[in-house]
Design a binder for these strands. Structure first.
Length: 429
RNA sequence: GCCAACGUGGCGGAGUGGUCAAACGCGCUCGCCUUGAGAGCGAGAGUCCGAGAGGGCACGCAGGUUCAAAUCCUGUCGUUGGCGCCA
């Protein structure tokens, strides 16, 4: 959410920002927003004056009663005021709702280093690692190979839970855990605290961390309870300090969120969307940082580097992309995507998404910090995927498969999976 | 899940329809004093509108009653205790 004072005092900045984002239809909102805000303020003044009058008469009534005077006339005077206040409050409420509607939907102010562009074609690759090689033999689709090796069962999962679910078995289940543990080990060494949040959240705090559309399109609701399955641990982590004032000396707070994620949305049907790419349930380690405003760009680079460390460790070629002004979401001021190389498909696929939300997310959540001199300021929040296991499993299965149909386990993961070096076809007994 | 009590500042805790928004105590920030620390003294610290003067709101949250609500009523969330259920 944008600061209303920015709109009151620096409308030009907001307008330029919308132009950069190619979000032109929202420019038309600004005029109405300014007008409604003005109306709201003058109405508030009227209401405050009425309240003052009412408070004065109430005090007079009290004083008159104390000296035994008749208060009938005063009470009659006061009697009409509450109704008048109520009427005006209803109009004020409507104005506030509209102002809020705009504020919630106007996007964050972009950082100057975000490349100008229209859509994902204009995103700038700013770093590459490894060789994006074509395979030397025909690679199998990860879902097919996993089924052949009997380390995943999609068909039976469909039978009991529907499309988009899976059983992980044996070495693949171990590999899933190993990825999480490897990710955790990197982050914990960097001073992150591992945190396992609740996997279900109430509606009201959830509204603070996601768009209303998500409730319809993405999130699973528990029938009969005011609870939703989390779509990412970012949500319970961000909501954690809602409406709190943190102490400057406790910052930064760096969390490595560990959770299963649940999402209704599911990709188009077709070969490349089957298997582990778009699924209703997956495990994820997520980086989340609360910090002082002056530190957020430093941490933005730090959490991006952690993702790079993980990909390098696994030996997955990647490109780091500076997402352009037209393709970035409304919450982030700047975003890097990390896309891993899939040699079977011969293209990069999105594995991680790293955002500096500056104070945009925190303002909506009401998270501030108290400075040493007692002043309060809205905090900055950042998040970045460390590893979303199913996507990573897909890349590992496809990139590290051998001609004879086995899968080589990346060296860094071997200590976390009982020293298994290779997932081989099982011998028939 | 049921029953009961409770929910006030950074913390402990007063206040049970109007003189109250925070007595009293602890902690915090700034200043004076001091070589320094401590003690002592003084000032400050919710939020919104307003250039300011000033005013509004705020006692878990949301409603209601009343001229007037921390205080009365209803709902809700939470805490604690008791009972029940249960990996």
């Amino acid at each position: 959410m944008l600061d209303i004072n920015l709109i009151r005092n620096n409308l030009k900045i907001v307008e330029e920002n919308l132009k950069k984002r190619h979000d032109l239809e929202k420019i038309a909102w600004l005029k109405d927003l300014v007008k409604k805000d003005k109306e709201w303020r003058s109405l508030k003044q009227e209401i405050d004056n009425l309240r003052q009058k009412r408070n004065q008469i109430s005090a007079e009534i009290k004083n008159a009663q104390n000296v035994g005077k008749d208060v009938k006339k005063l009470i009659a005077d006061a009697k009409n005021i509450p109704a008048e206040i109520k009427k005006k409050e209803a109009s004020m409420g409507k104005l506030a709702d509209k102002v809020n509607y705009y504020l919630m939907r106007l996007p964050n102010i972009l950082h100057d280093s975000v490349p100008f562009g229209k859509d994902d074609a204009d995103n700038k690759v700013i770093e590459t690692y490894g060789e994006a090689e074509k395979p030397k033999f025909p690679l199998k689709h990860h879902g097919q190979l996993a089924a052949e090796l009997d380390i995943a069962d999609f068909e039976r999962a469909v039978k009991i839970s529907g499309n988009g679910f899976f059983y992980l078995k044996g070495e693949l289940a171990l590999l899933d855990l190993a990825l999480q543990q490897y990710a955790i080990s990197i982050l914990v060494k960097k001073g992150f605290t591992l945190i396992q949040p609740p996997f279900l959240m109430r509606r009201k705090p959830y509204e603070g961390v996601t768009s209303l559309d998500d409730f319809e399109n993405v999130m699973y609701k528990i029938e009969g309870d005011d609870l939703y399955l989390i779509a990412t641990s970012e949500h319970p982590m961000a909501a954690m300090y809602q409406n709190e004032i943190l102490d400057e000396k406790d910052l930064p707070i760096k969390y490595a969120g560990l959770s299963t994620c649940f999402r209704k949305e599911i990709g188009k049907h077709g070969l490349d969307e089957r298997g582990f790419f778009r699924v209703h349930q997956f495990n994820k380690i997520e980086q989340f940082v609360f910090c002082k405003p002056e530190d957020s760009w430093k941490f933005f680079e730090e959490i991006a580097k952690n993702s790079a460390t993980l990909l390098k460790g696994l030996g997955i070629p990647y490109e780091k992309v500076n997402v352009c002004t037209g393709d970035i979401g409304i919450i982030a001021a700047k975003k890097y995507d990390f896309n891993g190389w899939s040699s079977r498909e011969g293209k990069f696929i999105e594995l991680m998404s790293c955002s500096n939300c500056t104070n945009y997310q925190a303002r909506r959540l009401g998270i501030k910090f108290r400075k040493k001199n007692g002043e309060k300021e809205v905090i900055h929040t950042l998040n970045n995927t460390m590893v979303a296991t199913t996507r990573m499993l897909r890349v590992i299965i496809e990139n590290f498969q051998t001609k004879k149909g086995s899968i080589k386990v990346p060296k860094v993961l071997q200590p976390y999976m009982l020293k298994i070096k290779e997932i081989k076809p099982k011998k028939k007994k």
